[in-house]
Structures are given as C-alpha cells and as structure tokens.
C-alpha cells in the first residue's frame, strides 16, 4: 500500500477551512450548552416541582435518543415551525440542546454534592434556595465541575462531525468532499483523525490550565 502524498499535501489547507467551521460551531454550541446546561441543572436542584419534572423529561429524552436523530429532528423541524435558519444554526441548536442536557446532569451532580452544612449555614442566615444556589453552592462547584465539563465539550466537538449529514461544511464534510473527487479515503480519514486529535489536545491543555488557575480552598 502506498500513501498518495500529493493528495495529502493538497488536502491539508482544504481541511483547515473545514476546521475553522468546526471550531465556530463547537464554540457557539459550547457557549449555549454551558449556560443552558448550568441553568437547567440549577432548576433541577432548586426549581418548582413541575419545572424539575420538565428538566427531568428533557434530559431523559436527550439521553434516550441518538444525536443523529436529534439533528434531523431539529433540521427538519425548525422550518416547519417557521424558522428558516439554515444548516449552520440548525446544527448549532441541535448540538447545544444535546450538550445542555448532559451538562445539566453534571451541574446537578456537582452542586448537589457540596457538603450539606453549607446549605444549612446559608439557611441559618436567612437565605432562600435561589440565593443559596447562586452565592454559596455554585461558586464552590465550578472547580470540581471542570474535568467533567471538559469531557462533555470534547464530546461536543467530536459530535460536530455528525453535522456533515445535514451538509454543514465542517471538518468531516470537507474531508468527504475530497474523498468524493479524488478517492483517497484512507489518507483523508487519517488526516481527519490527526486534525481532531490536535484540536482536542489543545482543548484538554486549556482545561488543565483553567483548573490550575481556579482558586482552591
């Protein structure tokens, strides 16, 4: 077997274009997923009962169905509801909805495991549930959340490859385009693997730096 180096050389800059799109989608979806997920996590700890059940049902649905199906539902569902946002935003929304559910579980678990005495002390000075979550429990949970969140963000980043099915021109899709015209699947898929691996290595490194910088008590 021989590797066609000419194709590899030609593919490197083309794939870089797809990489930019992948990073764009991943960062916007991470932003939405994080804020939405933490908000949902807090609701499931301190919200009214009916809200908790709503979050519970949402998380169950997301965990219980394949992401690929969720992407199609968003992609074909949004236009039916009158939103013509195009495949980029459909992809971002699908990934955000998906990661928010998992992040909600992380937030619920981490915030819920802060020592019970903290809640009691906060109650004893007259704090209500919302204030306790916001001023006492959440700040103490950020550092222990980082490793689990990193995992989910990595998953989200890899999941962007699924958006190729709704023709978002991200990294995987840009590779597939090259394969279609030059038929060099092994070279291209190997290159794609290297690209993803590099991005995720940087991400893990950033996460470790953040974790080290966050104050510990």
């Amino acid at each position: 077997m021989t590797i066609d180096w000419a194709i590899v050389e030609m593919a490197i800059p083309l794939l870089a274009v797809g990489t930019v799109m992948t990073l764009k989608i991943a960062s916007v979806a991470t932003l939405f997923g994080l804020t939405g997920g933490i908000a949902l996590g807090l609701v499931s700890l301190g919200g009214w009962t009916w809200m908790r059940w709503l979050v519970r049902g949402y998380v169950d649905f997301i965990r219980g169905t394949p992401l690929l199906i969720q992407i199609f539902i968003v992609f074909f569902g949004l236009p039916l509801m009158g939103f013509r946002l195009g495949e980029f935003w459909a992809g971002v929304i699908a990934l955000s909805l998906n990661s928010a559910a998992y992040i909600a579980e992380i937030a619920r678990g981490t915030v819920g495991s802060v020592e019970k005495g903290q809640t009691e002390a906060a109650k004893s000075i007259g704090m209500t549930q919302g204030k306790i979550l916001f001023y006492i429990l959440l700040p103490q949970s950020i550092r222990p959340m980082v490793p689990a969140l990193t995992n989910d963000i990595i998953t989200l980043l890899k999941n962007t490859s699924l958006l190729s099915v709704i023709s978002v021109y991200e990294l995987t899709r840009s590779g597939q385009a090259i394969i279609a015209s030059h038929f060099a699947p092994l070279e291209i898929f190997a290159l794609l693997a290297i690209y993803y691996y590099a991005i995720i290595s940087v991400l893990s490194w950033i996460s470790r730096v953040i974790e080290r910088r966050l104050p510990a008590w």
Binding site: G117, E120, A121, A122, S124, I136, P139, Q140, P215, W217
Partner: peptide
C-alpha cells in the same frame, strides 16, 4: 452556630 463551623470556604 454549628459544631463544624460551616463557614463558606470560597
């Protein structure tokens, strides 16, 4: 005032 203080560590 609690036995284990329960100060907010952050």
């Amino acid at each position: 005032v609690f036995q284990r203080f329960n100060l907010f560590p952050h």
